[in-house]
């Protein structure tokens, strides 16, 4: 296999798992380094900036809570795109991508819920309320867990990919609900203050650490996702090889 044949010239070349593995090996060290660097800067800014005049120190929870919440939705959107890739283009890596993203998305959603709860207690006076925003994010968490369970329940990826892709797309309806829940319903959770049509309404003192932490979390997601996709490809190769070995052993047994 020459190095030349592994070069990725067009997007469709990524469909080849061997090419993807080569690309992942080249990208991962850089991505990990960049992620670590952004976290160093982000964490430094998170604790170097001043506290809020009303919220005091607890405003620092925002620098973890908000990026985790964004990532929980972005991860699901990546999975929805991958589901389209599975159903429409039958892209061989689409199902690998969706499957690898689910546990990562579940972890980010868990973080958004837990840090939100830890922020809610001192600021709202309660760990949890069943308002539209909190409930819809909790539903997102359950959907991640359900998809992970489904992927594990059906051994053969060829059979599970379609079912889980349809489920991912059906569940995508929850993403706009999460995003707009704070506008459509009367929630204890505050409305958006960064991603607004009329620009952020948050003070630059808090916006900078938030942006750097959001970049760090996004880089972390892509690093983990590419590494998890690589693992998923290797897992499928192991399964295929074991099946091959079992078939060969069966032939030998019959020949004797």
């Amino acid at each position: 296999m020459s190095e030349n044949s592994l070069a990725i010239r067009k997007f469709s070349d990524l469909a080849n798992p061997t090419r993807f593995l080569a690309l992942a090996d080249r990208l991962l060290p850089w991505l990990s380094g960049l992620t670590a660097l952004s976290f160093v800067v982000g964490l430094w800014l998170s604790f170097a900036t001043e506290g809020d005049y009303q919220q005091g120190e607890t405003v620092r929870i925002m620098y973890v809570h908000v990026p985790a919440a964004w990532l929980s939705m972005m991860c699901y959107s990546v999975m929805a795109l991958a589901a389209l890739g599975t159903l429409v283009w039958r892209h061989p890596l689409a199902d690998v991508s969706a499957r690898a993203a689910a546990p990562i998305g579940a972890c980010f959603t868990f973080l958004a819920l837990v840090t939100g709860s830890l922020w809610g207690k001192p600021m709202w006076g309660t760990w949890w309320v069943w308002d539209a925003r909190l409930t819809s994010v909790f539903v997102l968490f359950l959907m991640y867990l359900g998809l992970m369970a489904l992927n594990r329940a059906i051994d053969d990826p060829a059979r599970s990919s379609k079912v889980s892709a349809i489920l991912v797309l059906v569940g995508f309806v929850n993403i706009p609900i999460i995003k707009f829940s704070v506008e459509w319903w009367n929630t204890l959770h505050q409305p958006a203050s960064v991603m607004r049509l009329d620009g952020p309404t948050i003070d630059p003192e808090f916006l900078w650490p938030l942006i750097v932490m959001a970049i760090a979390f996004t880089l972390l997601f892509f690093t983990l996702h590419i590494a998890a996709m690589r693992n998923e490809i290797l897992r499928r190769r192991v399964t295929a090889l074991r099946r091959l070995a079992a078939r060969a052993a069966g032939r030998e047994a019959r020949a004797q």
């Binding site: 005091g56 120190e57 620092r60 972890c107 973080l111 922020w119 693992n231």
Partner: peptide
Amino acid sequence: HAAYVFTSYGIATLTVLGLIAWVILD
């Protein structure tokens, strides 16, 4: 208030480290 902040960052660190360990060991 500081305890809420440190608990949040602590849980976040543990979760992220757990994810990284899972990806590497897998």
